[in-house]
Each structure stands twice: as structure tokens, then as C-alpha cells.
């Protein structure tokens, strides 16, 4: 059940298109920057196969120039540094 956030950079002039694509995809929440050509993408998938499939879909987006991971979480926690929830 991974939760991952990315910085998504669109190709020139394609920010609106990319944002629209990402917002329409399952398991995705996308937020466009107000003053830069940049999008924050947060994905929340139920299992590893879905995650892999989503990543393939993301890589295939024509408006996407670059996707950089900023945060990744899976259910494997560090026994010494886990959080009390």
C-alpha cells in the first residue's frame, strides 16, 4: 500500500494538459504550482501490482518531461524509529 509523492515537470507549454491528465487518473492527486511550471503528484495505491501499473501509466504520459520522487512510504516500518499512530 505505497504512498508516494513526486515533483512532476511538464514539457514546455504542457503544464495544464499534464495537470488535467494526472487529476483524472485513479490513485492520483495532483496540485499545480501557482507561479512555476511544476506539479506535485501524490499517489496512493492499494497494492504493489497496482503501483507498478500506475508507474507505467505515468511514464507513458506525453506531456510529462520528468518525474522526481520526493517521498515514499510502504507498510514496512523501521523498528527503531517508527511513529506512534
Amino acid at each position: 500500500m505505497p504512498i508516494i509523492s513526486y515533483l512532476a515537470t511538464p514539457n514546455d507549454g504542457e503544464k495544464a494538459r499534464l495537470l488535467s491528465c494526472l487529476q483524472s487518473m485513479d490513485y492520483c492527486e495532483a496540485f499545480g504550482a501557482e507561479n512555476k511550471d511544476l506539479i506535485i503528484l501524490v499517489t496512493d495505491t492499494p497494492n504493489e501490482p497496482t503501483e507498478k501499473k500506475l508507474q507505467q501509466q505515468l511514464k507513458a504520459l506525453p506531456a510529462l518531461q520528468n518525474l522526481s520522487m520526493a517521498y515514499g512510504h510502504s507498510e514496512h516500518s523501521n523498528p527503531h524509529n517508527s511513529q506512534e499512530q
Binding site: E29, I40, V42
Partner: peptide, 14 residues
């Protein structure tokens, strides 16, 4: 909560 943390991390990187 984790999604908020994920969003915040991306904000920080941005």
C-alpha cells in the same frame, strides 16, 4: 496523515 507528509515533502523539495 501519511499523504499529508508526502505532500509536505514534495513541497519542501519544490
Amino acid at each position: 496523515f501519511i499523504k499529508t507528509a508526502a505532500f509536505n515533502s514534495a513541497m519542501a523539495a519544490a
